[in-house]
């Protein structure tokens, strides 16, 4: 157990916490979505990094290589990326609709407008 062996996890956690902070602290809806995307990419790193073997190569079988990185996380994350873009597209469409209904994409202004018209 030394610092180098767990560095990949800690970098992932830093990104994850930053994404979480953006989602919680920022009132702007588009910025919240960007924070969500950063959170998602940190999850990609969390899955891919343990699959790497130092001295290994990408999991494409060829002569002259015997050590390959683990292909299963790659498959899972390919699916996750595509689902992530679907989530982003749907979220942005909702933001555009919210902006039309309330003329604002700031969370606090939307809540204030909601209170004014019961």
């Amino acid at each position: 157990m030394n610092a180098a062996s767990h560095f990949s996890y800690w970098a992932t956690i830093c990104l994850m916490v930053m994404g979480l902070f953006i989602v919680m602290a920022r009132a702007n809806l588009i910025k919240k979505l960007v924070g969500l995307a950063i959170f998602q990419t940190s999850i990609y790193l969390l899955y891919i990094a343990p699959g790497k073997l130092i001295g290994g190569t990408a999991p494409i079988i060829a002569d002259g290589f015997s050590v390959y990185s683990n292909p299963l996380p790659h498959v899972l994350i390919l699916t996750a990326i595509v689902v992530g873009i679907a989530v982003l597209a749907l979220g942005l469409a909702l933001v555009v609709r919210i902006r039309e209904a309330y003329d604002s994409i700031e969370e606090d202004e939307i809540l204030a407008a909601e209170e004014r018209q019961p």
């Binding site: 990609y44 190569t57 990408a58 990185s69």
Partner: peptide
Amino acid sequence: LDAVDVAMTEAAV
């Protein structure tokens, strides 16, 4: 990290 397929998708998407 040897994840070439994922990297390509991430760059494109």
